[in-house]
Design a protein around this nucleic acid. Structure first.
Lengths: 167, 167
DNA sequence: TTTAACTTTCAGTAATTATTGAAAGTTAAG
DNA sequence: CTTAACTTTCAATAATTACTGAAAGTTAAA
């Protein structure tokens, strides 16, 4: 396989995988493109490479910037903006974790806490509260693990997990 | 808040959260309904409660059974099938982890391994391979942690993580 | 200032994904 | 068998989500 072909395959595949994670396909493709690019790219570069509209580039680049995994860069003598992806994959992992925790875990905790307030001491009510409590405890735990991962440094994954990962 | 109101809110909220995780809204609602129900429910019960069609119930219940978090149950003297959700939340967590690992992590590893085969020793090629390698190593590590969680028992979360979770 | 090189917005439209419901398939009871 | 009580399928359609492109907005240079 030739380099550009490989890069292209990477960009395409990333996009299609993203959809199975509930992430916008184009957003993933733009990120993949920036990640494997050796130089900053302008909106036009992205439009041309991915064959998408100006508006689409703008929206998705903005989302990536929101996620904290892409940043603007200025090139001397050029009026327009260029974009680069952070090449540090551990940092990428942490940012994605942070974003997904915010989108997927925190709202769950919030809702469960709200629902647990229900005051019903019937058999059925108690059973419901038991389920809520169990959901809460697992969710909260997962949340604090992710919280920790976000704060941790690159060796966290390796060192803290080694003992339990080996069979 | 009254019990049925709370159950209802739980079902609705679960559905809307699910969409932000790339999971079908109805599937999440059906699961939520079965989880808080004290008795097995038939397809008709689900249709009536959630106001959805027979076909939709059938498809989503089947998906939940595929995920391994709902099972069929037979009631003596009744011809039709009834469904129940596993009430063990740790088991639920493990099954969801298993399914998402399969959908989200494993395909990534497969693609990265394929792409790493590229033979290009230019500066740019090396840089690309560096990125692929970094992506691989983090992904593989996350994968083995999840693998471990799936095999582990209920105390795994608590015991193995306690030391690093406390500040 | 004014102009021109850009970026952003957003209404309209396209693409994707989920749902319906009626028809076909299956199976237990008579 | 035959019937009836169910379950499954799937083409048509609805709902949701993403994308386009032209117009409006912004800002740096002349």
């Amino acid at each position: 396989m030739e380099l550009n072909e490989a890069k292209n395959k990477y960009i395409q595949t990333w996009g299609s995988l993203a959809t199975s994670w509930g992430i916008n396909k184009t957003m993933a493709q733009v990120h993949a493109l920036l990640l494997v690019s050796t130089k900053p790219l302008s909106a036009e570069d992205i439009m041309d490479t991915l064959k998408i509209s100006r508006g689409n580039v703008n929206m998705n680049v903005r989302a990536l910037i929101d996620w904290g995994i892409v940043s603007k860069e200025f090139v001397v003598g050029e009026r327009k903006e260029f974009f680069v992806a952070d090449k540090d994959i551990w940092e990428l992992f942490k940012q994605i974790t942070k974003e997904r925790k915010k989108r997927e875990i925190e709202p769950v905790i919030k809702v469960l806490d709200e629902l647990k307030k229900i005051d019903d001491s019937s058999e059925e009510g108690e059973q419901f509260k038991k389920v809520l409590g169990d959901l809460s405890s697992v969710t909260t735990k997962v949340n604090s693990i992710l919280e920790n991962a976000i704060k941790a440094d690159e060796h966290w994954l390796l060192s803290n997990f080694t003992k339990m990962v080996k069979k």
